[in-house]
Every structure is written in structure tokens, then in C-alpha cells.
């Protein structure tokens, strides 16, 4: 039997060109969901096949790739995707946010401000922000085409009527460049402001749903709200127990079965960077200087 051999970054060049065309269209129409002929990938749908296809299509041999899941470089899915590209493309990989030229992410935007020339690739499970209000694709596409977003506001209205404030904590809808309402993928709403006027190119890939969308650099991204109930960021009211950061999104760690809890940075690279600079938190171990 023939040994199966694969192209650079796994996908064949024909497929990459198709995906690049979709990406270019997405960049040209910020926030608009471009249908593309998503391929079967060797990882399951729902595990980042959209992000992987986008990354595979834009990756060149000189790129440096970082992959995070839940903000961390060390979660199993992030490792698996990083190894996939190390193997199929032979590109350099890194955990450092500033050192990466391409960052693929699931559910977070790095804390370190992104710079020009970087590309942030989001893995997206459900690209349609109106999906749970209107299940039919034919109807939601018409709503986007006509910019009929009253239904989205009905949902926000209901939240306030019921809970006193907008009760959406992640995948919080945004309006891109004053036109399309977009789902930022299931990032916590804490990350929403980072999408606005961002220096990096942001690409979103949804494999199972076969959609790609984009936010070009320096594009206006506004979280939906009401004038008298403005969008607010949410963050646990605590410093990181390891690095003392007061400006980062935190993971809650259950430390024992008696209700013990502590909070640490969800962005592991950010946290390590701060600790290397000498910042400490209540639970931090002294940095092992010899550990290179």
C-alpha cells in the first residue's frame, strides 16, 4: 500500500488557494461570514478544524506559530494543534505572544497587546450570532443582508427586563465597522474591547459550519448594548495569585474539597512573563533562575 504523504501544512495547494480567497473576501467585508468549502481535517469537527484550515492556508515556512486554548499553551488541544503544524509544516513554534507571527486561539485573546503584522486565528464553533434567536440559515442571512438586527436587541432587552443587566458573559455579540453583527467566538466578554482598533489581523474559522470571517487591523468593533445599559467588562475581583496581575482574565482553581479557591491568570504566557520580571502573588513560588 502507498504511504500517504502530505503537502506543506497538510492541505493541498488548491484547497489553500480556495481558503485564501475566502479570507480575502472576509477581510474586504469586515464581520461578514464568507461560506467556504471546509475540508475534513484529521481532527474532529468542534476541535478547531476551522482555525486549523485558516492557519494552514496562511502559514509560510518563516512563520512562528503560537497555539493557545483557554489562554494556555499547555492545554491538550493546543499542544496537539501545535504539534500538528510542527510536523506537517516544520515551522518554528513559540509560547511567547510578542514572538509569534501567527497565533491560533480557542476562547481567549492574549493579554499582551498584539502588534502590526501579527495574525490572530480564532477557532469558532457557531459563527452565526443570530443562530439561537433564529435557527434558519436562510432567514439569518436575510437578516444580515438587510441589517435587521432588532431581534438581537430584543434578546438584550429581555436580559435587562429579567436580570437587570445584559446576561451574556461570553460570545458577546459585536458590531463590526458599523455594519455586520458578529459572534466573537466563545471568548469571555472581558476580551471584547481588545478586538476594537486592534493592530493585528483577526481571522475567524468555523470548520463544521463552513464559514470564515475577519476583522482587518484597526477596525472599529463595538459590543452591542443600550445607551442606558452600556457594555461592561467582567473580571473576578482579585489579583492573580501567582503574578499579582490586576488586569488579566482569571481562571478559578479549586485547591481542596473544603471550598478552597484561588485565582490565576488564564493567559499562561502573560503570567510567566510577569513572574520573570519579578512580579509575585500570594501563592507564587520563587522563580527557578536556573530553569532555562
Amino acid at each position: 500500500m502507498i504511504e500517504a504523504s502530505y503537502n506543506f501544512a497538510y492541505l493541498d495547494e488548491q484547497t489553500k488557494r480556495m481558503i485564501r480567497r475566502a479570507i480575502l473576501k472576509a477581510i474586504a467585508i469586515p464581520g461578514y461570514q464568507v461560506p467556504f468549502a471546509s475540508r475534513e481535517m484529521p481532527m474532529p469537527y468542534g476541535w478547531g478544524t476551522g482555525g486549523v484550515q485558516v492557519t494552514a492556508s496562511i502559514l509560510g515556512p518563516d512563520d512562528t506559530l503560537k497555539v493557545i486554548d483557554q489562554g494556555s499553551d499547555d492545554t491538550t488541544n493546543a499542544i496537539s494543534i501545535r504539534k500538528f503544524f510542527a510536523k506537517t509544516a516544520g515551522v518554528a513554534t513559540t509560547t511567547s505572544t510578542p514572538a509569534a507571527s501567527v497565533i491560533q486561539t480557542r476562547h481567549r485573546i492574549p493579554e499582551t497587546t498584539l502588534h502590526e503584522g501579527q495574525v490572530l486565528v480564532y477557532q469558532v464553533p457557531i459563527p452565526e450570532p443570530l443562530r439561537f434567536l433564529e435557527p434558519r440559515e436562510t432567514e439569518t442571512r436575510r437578516m444580515h443582508a438587510l441589517a435587521e438586527y432588532g431581534l438581537m436587541h430584543v434578546k438584550l432587552y429581555e436580559d435587562i427586563a429579567k436580570f437587570g443587566h445584559i446576561a451574556t458573559s461570553y460570545a458577546y455579540p459585536v458590531k463590526v465597522a458599523g455594519r455586520y453583527v458578529m459572534d466573537p467566538s466563545p471568548t469571555p466578554k472581558f476580551d471584547n474591547p481588545k478586538m476594537n482598533d486592534c493592530a493585528a489581523l483577526q481571522l475567524f474559522g468555523a470548520g463544521r459550519e463552513k464559514r470564515i470571517y475577519a476583522i482587518p487591523p484597526y477596525t472599529q468593533v463595538v459590543s452591542l448594548d443600550f445607551e442606558d445599559h452600556p457594555f461592561t467588562r467582567y473580571r473576578q475581583n482579585a489579583p492573580c495569585a501567582l503574578c499579582g496581575a490586576e488586569d488579566s482574565y482569571l481562571d478559578e482553581i479549586v485547591t481542596d474539597d473544603r471550598g478552597g479557591r484561588m485565582f490565576v491568570c488564564s493567559d499562561t504566557d502573560y503570567c510567566e512573563g510577569r513572574r520573570a520580571q519579578g512580579h509575585t502573588g500570594t501563592e507564587s513560588a520563587p522563580m527557578e533562575a536556573a530553569d532555562a
Binding site: G150, H153, V154, Y157
Partner: peptide, 10 residues
């Protein structure tokens, strides 16, 4: 209907 025509004050 009000929200659909751009009302944005809850």
C-alpha cells in the same frame, strides 16, 4: 419595532 428602527435607550 422601535429597536428595529434604531431606538437604543432601554
Amino acid at each position: 419595532r422601535l429597536m428595529a428602527i434604531g431606538w437604543n435607550h432601554y
